[in-house]
Amino acid sequence: MTGSGDTDATVALTDRGFAYGDGLFETVLVRDGVPLLWDEHCARLAQGAHRLGFEPPAKGWLDALPAKAPRGKCVLKIVLTRGSGGRGYRPPLPAEPRCYWQFTSFTPMPERWERGVSVRLCQLRLARQPALAGLKHLNRLENVLARQEWQDDAIAEGLLLNDRDQLVEATAMNLAWFDQGQWWTPELIECGVEGTLRRALIDQGHLSIARASDAPLSRFLNAPSTCLFNSVQGLWPIVRCLDAQHQHVHGQWPIDDSVRRLQGDAHALLGYPSNFPIF
């Protein structure tokens, strides 16, 4: 394993991560040198490397990275590639992975925690590829194209469906809806990124997984409350969903007790506040 970070992170043109998106990345919230959901991030990185067919960094090597962080809140971005070598798409055997990292200052958006956000439906449909489902791999062109669909800062996120019009995720966050007394989030066995906050909430029993066939857009839009979340931004209640042209409102939701309870569970894992009013 070779690695470089912050000031010396030069990427070779021959690096397969740069050339083909042949690699993975993690974005980790770090507070005063302490990484949040660190075990989940390391586990996802290791699982992704094994599924792509090369060795992940040693856990001890990764554990040394957060201690390099500046004081206060920041985001540690880790990029793991297969390295260089091979002929064309044929990967080298054995691979010599490279790991790059960088710290970026970060300020969350408490107004979105408190007042909720508006979202839109994206026109782009996610392709189904079970071999890559759940991984935070480097090829994120679908997300880039989806995010390119709008420039209105009043729209916080875009919702993504697959080619069967089943709900999957947002462009940079996971999502959930409240129904039949519990919170549901779509299964991610064909596409989508399994977020680390999503994994922690499932493991703690706060979220249930809905099969793709049970996650049509209509179920989400008809739910009494909905939300978005990830391991950096925390949980945003959704208050309105617009169509792709921002002309028709598909759904509106109050910020109720069920959202605030899930927000409290999520924010407890990230060290964020959760004592917001109910509108």
Rank of each mutant, 00 (worst) to 15 (best):
C42S: 10
R16Y: 13
L175M: 01
D257M: 08
P97W: 08
Q148I: 02
L135W: 10
D63G: 08
Q180A: 06
L167W: 05
R112A: 11
A19V: 04
D203L: 10
D265V: 12
R31P: 01
R112K: 07
L160V: 06
G3F: 12
M109Y: 11
P97S: 05
I78W: 02
V28R: 02
D243C: 10
E187Q: 07
R90T: 14
A154T: 08
G86F: 03
A210M: 00
E114W: 01
W150T: 09
K73P: 01
N162I: 00
V193Y: 02
S208T: 14
T27R: 08
Y272L: 04
R71G: 15
R98P: 00
P70L: 10
G88S: 07
T171N: 05
N162S: 05
V28H: 05
A131M: 12
L62M: 15
R120P: 00
T10Y: 07
P70G: 09
L141A: 04
L93E: 15
Q245V: 10
P216Q: 12
M109E: 12
E169F: 01
L207N: 09
I78L: 13
K77N: 11
D165M: 06
I278V: 11
S274K: 02
L269K: 10
M109D: 12
R51L: 13
V193I: 15
I78V: 15
T7S: 13
G86W: 11
Q166S: 04
I278C: 06
S213Q: 15
S84P: 00
Q129G: 03
C74M: 07
R120Y: 01
M109P: 06
V117W: 04
D163C: 11
R31M: 06
W177Y: 01
H246E: 13
F220Q: 02
L175V: 00
R140F: 10
G83E: 01
L262W: 00
A170Q: 03
V11C: 06
A268N: 13
R211L: 14
E142D: 13
F276H: 06
N162W: 05
Q129Y: 13
G48Q: 14
L45G: 01
R44E: 06
L217T: 15
A156D: 02
A69Y: 12
R98Y: 06
A200P: 09
L201R: 00
L135M: 15
G271W: 02
P70I: 15
R90M: 11
L126H: 11
D152Q: 10
L36C: 08
M1F: 07
V232C: 05
A133K: 10
F106N: 07
E40Y: 12
Q180R: 05
Y272M: 03
D265G: 05
G33M: 12
P254W: 09
A127W: 00
Q252K: 11
Y20W: 10
F279Y: 09
S218L: 06
R71M: 08
P94R: 14
R261Y: 14
M1D: 08
E111F: 05
E55P: 12
F178D: 00
A268L: 01
A266W: 00
G72A: 04
